[in-house]
Design a protein around this nucleic acid. Structure first.
Lengths: 248, 248
DNA sequence: GTCAACAGGTTGTCAGACCAATTATAAAAA
DNA sequence: TTTTTATAATTGGTCTGACAACCTGTTGAC
């Protein structure tokens, strides 16, 4: 006979997973202080002893270091996606805008496809709100860019891969910081951006990753084509090879 | 002024030492049952919570196994410290290995497609040489990994996007540094790796980015599936959304 | 003899209290 | 005002008691 060795997951283990989730999502960064035990106890709805057991296990394994009277702190030497950050920033600083844009296109395509495959109602809702924010801020250029950035980050979160979202974040920030400043305000087209963003979310909701990706490329292209017109050094280039162009 | 970093030994730590003393003296033999928590509490003159913390630490490290309702038992296999030092820590730390692998898969897919679109005779030639190098080094594990790494870098160069190849380089290096060390040498399959690499180059030469990408995923999967078997915490996941599976 | 119900032992969890170390704040002294 | 000191608030460390969940053996009805 086959004996099922199903054992109920203990409360501390659930707490550990929850904390790991927070670390993974980047909400808890190296050096950050964990909320006090009593607070976590209330937040998770479990006894303080369970919190203690979970935390002390993670301390033992090396995630946290703890000082009585001060708190529990996430060590800064655990492997995390943010480890790249320093080096990656240097790398990004050295290259041409076209390569950055191309990389962004590929990453965003992947992200959109993943989001289409994974997103649930909650994520769709968040995306809708992000689109609404773009629409609401479309009058002011700076706030428009900010909202657009938030939209892409929300998308990245829906893809549930912190490595990809942190890479993407840096690339977008770099693009904005270095080049968008030179773009005349008249060139951005908030109306079209809102429209494409909306269509992206629609496609994601419909689980159609391919079409969502195609619209995303269109969305990114809105900015890119204008950029190419302004800066002659930038030659337009072919569409990313990992997309299949579809009529919308 | 010199600050002494004397820290009071905690109660649970004292309990652990006491229990360890009993194990070393042979009073507690493998398979034996530890006295109930309350009894130990009275015996050591400390609170039950301290006993619990000490015991659960020793359970985590691998000294005991515990069954609710029965008791805590000294394991009959060796309580080796390296479980604590190496593996367990990295099992918990391996939390994002999946994200790294997934990111790599997406990037390599893009790279392969781009390479298929751009590669000329010279690049094909370089790729062939890289494959030959893998074949030549397939006997020695370390040199094999090195050659495989070179192959992927050659591929990235053929894609002609320095940003993507830098990112990819960082990810691969991190994967190798942090996790491959735990892979038994017997698990790598140089023969299959050579074969898939060869097929990738063939598809690139034939300008068939889609199929090249499919083979690349297969190539990466060779390592991944073994890794999943070693570290159970790593759940296998679906293929990247940006690929279209094709029969080869 | 078989099976259900019960009782005892044991770990799992929760709640509250108090202790100990640190930090923040306010009062007092310079 | 600035510095020092005293006090309070915050937070991890420990203790205790209570109950739940689980395993085991015993008892008793059938």
């Amino acid at each position: 006979m086959k004996v099922e060795s199903i054992q109920k997951t203990s409360t501390p283990e659930l707490v550990v997973r929850e904390i790991l989730k927070n670390i993974k999502s980047g909400e808890l960064k190296p050096g950050d202080k964990l909320p006090p035990e009593r607070e976590l106890s209330k937040a998770f709805g479990v006894g303080r002893s369970s919190i203690r057991e979970a935390v002390s296990a993670m301390v033992l394994v090396g995630y946290f270091h703890v000082t009585q009277g001060k708190g529990v702190f996430l060590r800064d030497d655990i492997p995390s996606p943010h480890i790249f950050n320093g080096k990656l920033r240097d790398v990004l600083a050295a290259y041409w805008i076209l390569d950055l844009i191309e990389t962004r296109e590929h990453l965003e395509c992947s992200v959109v496809r993943m989001a289409a495959a994974k997103a649930g109602d909650k994520e769709i809702q968040q995306l809708r709100e992000a689109v609404d924010a773009i629409r609401a801020n479309s009058a002011d250029v700076n706030r428009f860019y900010e909202s657009d950035f938030d939209f892409h980050m929300t998308l990245a979160e829906a893809a549930e891969n912190p490595v990809m979202s942190s890479i993407l974040k840096m690339i977008i920030e770099k693009l904005h910081a270095d080049y968008m400043a030179f773009m005349p305000d008249t060139l951005c087209r908030p109306d079209r951006a809102v429209e494409t963003a909306e269509r992206i979310v629609d496609r994601i909701e419909g689980k159609d990753g391919e079409r969502a990706c195609a619209v995303m490329l269109e969305h990114l292209g809105i900015v890119k084509t204008e950029l190419v017109r302004i800066i002659p050094e930038i030659k337009p280039h072919r569409n990313p090879q990992n997309m299949v162009l579809l009529e919308s």
